[in-house]
Simulated scan of single mutants.
Amino acid sequence: MFTFPLVLTLMTKLVQIVNVAYFIIILVIFPELNLSGTANIIRRIFWCSFLFQFCALTLETWVDVTKEANKSVIILHDIWNKYAEKRGIDKRLLYLQFISMRFLTCKLKFTAYGFFPLDWTFLHTIIASATTYIIILVQLKK
């Protein structure tokens, strides 16, 4: 439900970061193209940092949700311990233990349609791909 807009938004921000960073580098390398002066470069630097912060805040939200969801294992295990001490072990408690062990071994991870994980590794991917694209564009300009 929310995955497609999230993928689209993050990919759009990546393209915008590459675009703005490319123009910053071009304006620094070729100052004769910069008709607006240093204000134009400063404005583009602020816009690029805003786009980067937007991606970082979006990912921080998902990382926090993942951390909180993975804490449920401890809560579930505590519930199991309380019931096991009071009533002994029956079928329902064995199932609760099974679910607790399953949560413990399989950590929750959010992905965007399975394309990329919504954690800090995606931010590294954004930086690496933006840097690669900018280097290619600068080399093509020369």
Rank of each mutant, 00 (worst) to 15 (best):
V28R: 12
E32S: 09
E68L: 12
F103G: 04
W120H: 11
Y133S: 12
S129Q: 09
Y113P: 01
Q139A: 14
I136L: 13
Y83T: 01
K82R: 13
T61R: 13
F2I: 00
T3F: 00
W47Y: 14
G114T: 05
K13E: 10
I17V: 14
F2W: 00
I126W: 01
L57Y: 14
E60L: 14
I134E: 03
V73Y: 15
I42T: 14
L140Q: 13
Q97C: 05
T132R: 13
F2G: 04
N34P: 02
I79S: 08
Q139L: 15
F46W: 06
A39I: 10
K67Q: 11
L93H: 03
F2M: 00
K86V: 09
I126T: 03
D90W: 03
N19K: 08
A56G: 03
T12D: 07
T105M: 08
F50I: 08
P5W: 05
I29Q: 07
I135F: 07
T125N: 08
R102F: 10
I26R: 10
F2R: 00
N81C: 09
L140Y: 11
V28G: 02
F30Y: 14
I29Y: 04
A56S: 14
S49V: 10
M1E: 06
I89Q: 01
Q139I: 13
I134A: 04
L104K: 15
W47Q: 13
S100I: 03
K13G: 00
G114M: 06
P31S: 02
T131E: 11
V73P: 00
M1W: 00
Q139Y: 10
V63N: 11
L118M: 14
W120G: 03
L94R: 11
I127L: 13
K141M: 12
I26D: 04
K67F: 09
I75T: 15
C48F: 12
R87G: 15
K141V: 09
Y22D: 08
I42R: 06
I45F: 06
K142L: 13
Y83R: 14
L27P: 02
L123M: 14
L35S: 09
T12V: 02
W62N: 10
I127G: 00
E85H: 06
T12N: 08
L76D: 08
T61M: 14
A39H: 07
I127D: 08
F116C: 03
L6Q: 02
K86S: 10
K67S: 06
C48A: 15
Y95K: 09
I79C: 09
V18E: 07
D64Y: 11
A112M: 07
L33V: 04
F30L: 06
V7M: 05
